[in-house]
């Protein structure tokens, strides 16, 4: 009699492979073509790094470098701001017992996830126009800050859930003031969550196109809006080189956060 393995379904493995193929094929093709010698993006003309050189020294390079710098500045500031705010919120949600606006606060923290991005974009544009803020790095930063809070909050709150308050009680029992109990015990224990929260918020800010495109104003570009503008003229090889570079950065980030998550588990 053939053993019936109830965990197995015929075809599921094939679908998984197809899924992985669909996920990776476009990225791989672009990565490969970014090393194409030929200026024609359809024909393979031999291996070359010339498009990478073009990214850093070519005629369009100042534009993209400026945009990349803007993206980085905004992502670092919005990411760290959102992380600070989310950390403080997570402490309140998990360490302040019951309080009046708890459910409302929870809904508020998650509001940016529930409002469709295009709605957030429209609302932000209207708001900044109404109060007379002209578009620029400042408006992008403020919009990103609000948008990134739930993404920073999720990993921090998940981490908080696994930190028993008996650690802080033990610290206070051992003569630590509440401030010391926070600094020496709770904060270090929260750190892996805070770090993942920052990474997530950072990537989300870096990734954003729609909101940025609405509030950026004329002349200010981030990397996604600059690439979008360029792609509208057709996909050129230098775009593929930039894409491949960003792919590399993303992979480094994910691996980093994965390793940190793992080391965080070990200390528990």
């Amino acid at each position: 009699m053939k053993q019936l393995d109830l965990r197995r379904f015929p075809g599921f493995f094939a679908i998984t492979l197809a899924c992985v193929f669909v996920l990776y094929a476009p990225l791989m093709v672009v990565a490969v073509y970014s090393f194409n010698e030929s200026t024609s993006i359809t024909r393979w003309g031999g291996f070359s790094l010339s498009w990478y050189a073009d990214v850093f020294t070519g005629p369009e390079s100042p534009k993209f470098q400026r945009a990349a710098l803007n993206s980085l500045i905004i992502a670092v500031l919005a990411g760290s701001g959102a992380t600070l705010i989310a950390t403080s919120a997570a402490v309140a949600m998990h360490r302040a017992g019951r309080f009046k606006a708890k459910t409302a606060s929870f809904a508020l923290i998650n509001l940016p996830l529930m409002v469709p991005e295009v709605v957030t974009a429209v609302a932000s544009l209207i708001f900044f126009t109404a109060i007379g803020f002209s578009g620029g790095i400042g408006t992008i930063l403020l919009a990103h800050l609000a948008f990134c809070i739930p993404f920073a909050y999720l990993p921090i709150a998940a981490r908080m859930q696994s930190i028993s308050d008996s650690y802080e009680q033990a610290a206070m029992d051992l003569y630590a003031t509440p401030k010391e109990a926070f600094r020496l015990i709770l904060l270090p224990l929260m750190m892996p969550g805070i770090f993942s929260g920052f990474l997530l918020a950072f990537i989300i800010s870096l990734d954003d196109f729609l909101i940025t495109n609405f509030v950026k104003g004329a002349g200010v570009e981030t990397l996604p809006t600059a690439i979008f503008g360029a792609v509208k003229q057709g996909i050129k090889p230098n775009i593929m080189a930039i894409s491949t570079l960003m792919l590399g950065v993303s992979v480094v980030f994910v691996t980093l956060s994965w390793l940190i998550g793992r080391s965080g588990q070990k200390t528990q």
Binding site: S164, S166, Q169, A171, M172, D173, Y175, P178, P188
Partner: peptide, 20 residues
């Protein structure tokens, strides 16, 4: 008095040893 001002110490049920 708050706990940190009492000359009294506790052994917790699940020990609450600082994991870090």
């Amino acid at each position: 008095l708050p706990p940190y001002k009492r000359p009294v110490n506790t052994v917790f049920q699940h020990y609450a040893l600082f994991p870090h």
